[in-house]
Design a protein around this nucleic acid. Sequence first.
DNA 1: GTCTATAGAAGGATAGAC
DNA 2: GTCTATCCTTCTATAGAC
Lengths: 208, 208
Amino acid sequence: MSATADPRHDTESPKQQAILTAAGELFMHQGYGATSMDAIARGAGVSKATLYAHFASKDVLFATIINQACLDNIVVGEFLPLDAPDLAAALTALGSRMLRFLLEDRALAIHRVVTAESMRFPELGRAFYDNGPRLFREVFGTWLARQQAAGRLAVPDPGIAADQFIGMLRTGVYQRATFGLQPPPTEAEIDATVAAAVSTFLKAYAAD
Amino acid sequence: MSATADPRHDTESPKQQAILTAAGELFMHQGYGATSMDAIARGAGVSKATLYAHFASKDVLFATIINQACLDNIVVGEFLPLDAPDLAAALTALGSRMLRFLLEDRALAIHRVVTAESMRFPELGRAFYDNGPRLFREVFGTWLARQQAAGRLAVPDPGIAADQFIGMLRTGVYQRATFGLQPPPTEAEIDATVAAAVSTFLKAYAAD
DNA sequence: GTCTATAGAAGGATAGAC
DNA sequence: GTCTATCCTTCTATAGAC
């Protein structure tokens, strides 16, 4: 509403925005080591000196990019299933959205980069985990507990159950996509994975 | 039996062995980009010229290391459960060995490196997948089909069921370990993950 | 803030002697 | 095969003018 509507504290100059965009593209698709500051400057249409006027070092720029990507790409709300009495439909919708999200180029790229550099940049692994898997586990686990309270599920450990559901999605075609293997997953494979995960999950945890 | 007992075709000189050892250690723990040929030569106690006399380029050396590691570390036999009538015990033993294997430093390191470089070295992703996940899926799927033939299981799709079992292991504590997060998994957490996977799997697929 | 130009270091790869 | 010494490129980062 006000003049400074953007919640991100400071004004981002066009050049800074261009740098962030170019750096994000390059770091995501080529990794930390294979991306040079020259290439980022060229991609952003600025000089290297300008680059270093905005970001003190390559490490800082990389951490900024990855941290921001971790926050941007995890929109929990989208993955929260509705409180529908039809458990199978709710889980199928959730699983379908989640697996398709994980299979997007951008999500795969972030996962690859964070995995690759998590030893040299421990805070990145932490940021990714906390904003991604951990957050989802909490939200989904809470939802499962509520279903249990409503008498629809019998879940001894909601956290473990949430992990199992996501684990059954992140396997098979997803694992293949992680390594960039051809052919890419088909819609039918994705749907079959989701349907199988929902089926197994409900056989194990449905009330009765 | 013969004088040339080693199935690997050629004699490996001590220097070559030293190079492979040093390169393996460095590539695994620092990745491709952060490992220099200087560092490998230093670690192996040879000159860089000797390095290049044995391996034409950094890429070739890297591919050699990773391909060998993929073959060395996947010993399917160890993970094949016995044909016991007690399904729960067999699956628990299998899951326990598998998850503990995946959590070893060496297995985590290979997985990280292959994930990181699979876009620039597609053949590595393929080698890892074929000798690891794909092979296990086939062997385990065949075992599941045999249990079904014996009337102990009802498995509509053995391949998907195998993926689901491994997927329920490769989540939670494993995902945390992938990003090098502290604290490391406890024995109790590992056992609980395995027990939960076996329980869910059997509730979904046990015959009756 | 932004540029051009460059310093200073490190990297991959090779020449030539032994 | 093995070494020492070196070439050339590329990289991160900065100096200095505007």
